[in-house]
Nucleic acid binder design. Structure first.
Length: 530
RNA sequence: GCCCCUGUAGUUCAAUGGAUAGAACGGAGGGUUCCUAAUCCUCUGAUCCAUGUUCGACUCAUGGCAGGGGCACCA
């Protein structure tokens, strides 16, 4: 529908839902002078689909759809199944999305949850716009942090790490020692060099085992969160190519030597100057990320690259992209960096453990326990918990910090994932109980137009805008309103056995399909029962 | 010191330069002989400050104030 209005008026018009439903189903701002001619243009495009097209003053044209046009859209919402809400914004494109980026020698903490959840949802939204999507993650498996973990393992005499917790604790002890003990610092720095060299067989064996154990835990959590990766890249895959590309750039004067290190002087471009290769000739994260850009292109050539990281990396990415812009302009141009906010806990049980970082695993477990109070079925409890966590992350505009108030969010009430899931479950229950009217022609449409019907018909526009703006919160807002309207409808209207049963069941099925598709795009599970 | 991000009801968040700034939680009151009350209905209450651009500013610009993050060999 939006497309048709745009066709009548040109690409640049602002089309939106009016603030008040009494105004109509669509509002277009065209300016006071053009309002009359716009009415004519829209009328000839929409024909009998619109019952009212009027100038609202202040340059708005309001469009109200007819009863049958709304019913038609609702029927479509039911009949199209999985295709309801599919867009064409990225049709035929190849897009690679990077997110979650684990540090393979630390446990996943709650901060990683944000990028993981946002990245998965963006991947799904982009896929839904017609693109072929590959998901990749870039794991840290080399560098000083890794040396700290291996040092910790060696000191505890562990040669065969078996759990991610063990590796995480080794990292903590190594990290503490590094800051407080100069001997340990020297040893760890030497270990770091030895890992890059890769010739100490026992050390590399420990390195490989530690990485495997950690990655198994990451994969377990990814699976729990409904995500997976087509490519798992590691630092160790990018050191060689990173060094090579940066050294090439050094020869072309894109990088400079400074105190034995190779730096990119970003000041002239308004970005920070950063070290790309250290004076010990080891690549920093910046060089590895440059290497990764080339490696990705080699393994999976794409039209667009999206990288999701925490917003503390925003400055670093500006420098990396500025440098890459000189090395390989076409590659740099297609990269979009999406910054996510921090997940902070409001005061509560989980934030007061001696300042320790809360692991993602413990956090998810705690929410599942809470959800279990109302759900005996462990699968459902897990779906509700994952839904609650994802909703809390995705409801906010990307980039802003997320304050997780344990007491409130774990209540699983109000504006929350379970609110959407519960509305869906109740609707599914009605559809399952009802006589099968699916193929029955809607003999008569009721006079009354339910609010929920007028919300449902906007779904395709919301999904395409959400994907275009890379802002899942837009879809979350819409689905929350949709659920709320469904709950009102459910409370006020008798559906099975009520007046206009056939029509109401059509609305119920359309709601079920819209909510199911919407939750799927967010990566929020849709339970059968609650 | 420089750079980036954020300031909206008591709290946590929305809002495509556009119409009367929208929810949830909290607080006050009410609803089920009936399809799942994790629900529904009513009331309550906000754009950090100043100047500017615009027909129109929560949104853009400049200057303050407040909070967070980043700024050469860590990621």
């Amino acid at each position: 529908m939006e497309d048709r209005i745009r066709k009548a008026l040109g690409e640049n018009v602002v089309i939106r839902r009016p603030p008040n439903p009494d105004f109509g189903d669509y509002a277009v701002f065209v300016g006071p002078e053009k309002a009359e001619s716009a009415v004519q243009a829209i009328r000839s495009e929409l024909g009998e689909k619109a019952s009212k097209i009027e100038v609202a003053g202040k340059g708005f044209v309001n469009i109200t759809l007819t009863r049958s046009a709304v019913t038609f859209a609702v029927a479509e919402a039911d009949a199209k199944g999985n295709d309801w809400g599919k867009g064409v914004g990225e049709d035929g494109k190849r897009i690679i999305v990077e997110y979650s980026n684990p540090n393979a020698f630390k446990e996943m903490h709650i901060g990683h949850l944000v990028g993981t959840v946002v990245g998965e949802s963006l991947s799904r939204l982009i896929e839904n716009s017609g693109a072929k999507v590959a998901r990749d993650t870039f794991g840290g498996d080399i560098g000083p942090n890794v040396a700290k973990a291996l040092w910790g393992l060696q000191k505890s005499g562990i040669t065969e790490p078996t759990t991610a917790v063990e590796v995480g604790e080794a990292y903590s002890s190594g990290s503490n020692a590094y800051d407080s003990d100069t001997l340990a610092k020297t040893e760890i720095d030497a270990l770091n060099q030895a890992i890059y060299a890769g010739t100490d067989r026992a050390l590399m064996e420990l390195w490989r085992k530690g990485r495997d154990v950690s990655m198994e835990e990451f994969r377990r959590i990814w699976k729990l969160l409904g995500t997976h990766f087509d490519f798992e890249f590691f630092d160790s895959d990018t050191t060689e190519i990173g060094l090579r590309v940066v050294n090439d750039g050094l020869n072309k004067n894109i990088f400079q030597k400074s105190d034995g290190a190779v730096i990119y002087n970003g000041e002239r471009k308004g970005v920070h100057t950063l070290v790309f290769i250290t004076s010990h000739n080891t690549p920093t994260y910046e060089a590895k990320d440059i290497g990764l850009a080339f490696l990705k292109e080699e393994r999976w050539p794409s039209d667009r690259v999206i990288i999701v990281t925490g917003n503390e990396q925003a400055g670093r990415f500006k420098t990396i992209l500025a440098a890459l812009g000189e090395l390989a302009p076409l590659l740099a141009e297609k990269i979009t960096h999406v910054a996510t906010g921090f997940l902070k806990l409001a005061f509560g049980k989980m934030s007061s453990r001696d300042g320790n970082v809360i692991t993602a695993s413990d956090f998810i477990k705690e929410v599942i326990e809470k959800a279990s109070e109302k759900n005996e079925d462990p699968l459902v409890a897990e779906q509700v918990a994952v839904g609650a966590i994802k909703y809390m992350i995705l409801r906010q505009s990307p980039g802003s910090d997320i304050i997780f108030d344990e007491k409130k969010s774990l209540s699983l009430e109000g504006d929350s994932g379970p609110y959407l899931q519960y509305a869906l479950v109740r609707a599914k229950s009605i559809v399952a109980k009802a006589p099968n009217t699916k193929h029955q022609a809607p003999n008569k449409m009721p006079e009354i137009l339910y609010s929920i019907e007028r919300i449902i018909l906007h779904f395709p526009e919301v999904t395409s805008r959400t994907a275009r703006e890379l802002a899942p919160n837009l879809l979350v807002n819409y689905l929350t309103e949709l659920a709320s309207e469904w709950n009102s409808f459910y409370a006020q209207e008798r559906i099975i056995g009520g007046d206009d049963e056939t029509h109401k069941l059509l609305v119920a099925r359309a709601f079920v399909n819209t909510m199911t598709n919407g939750l799927t795009l967010l990566g929020i599970p849709a339970p059968e029962k609650m």
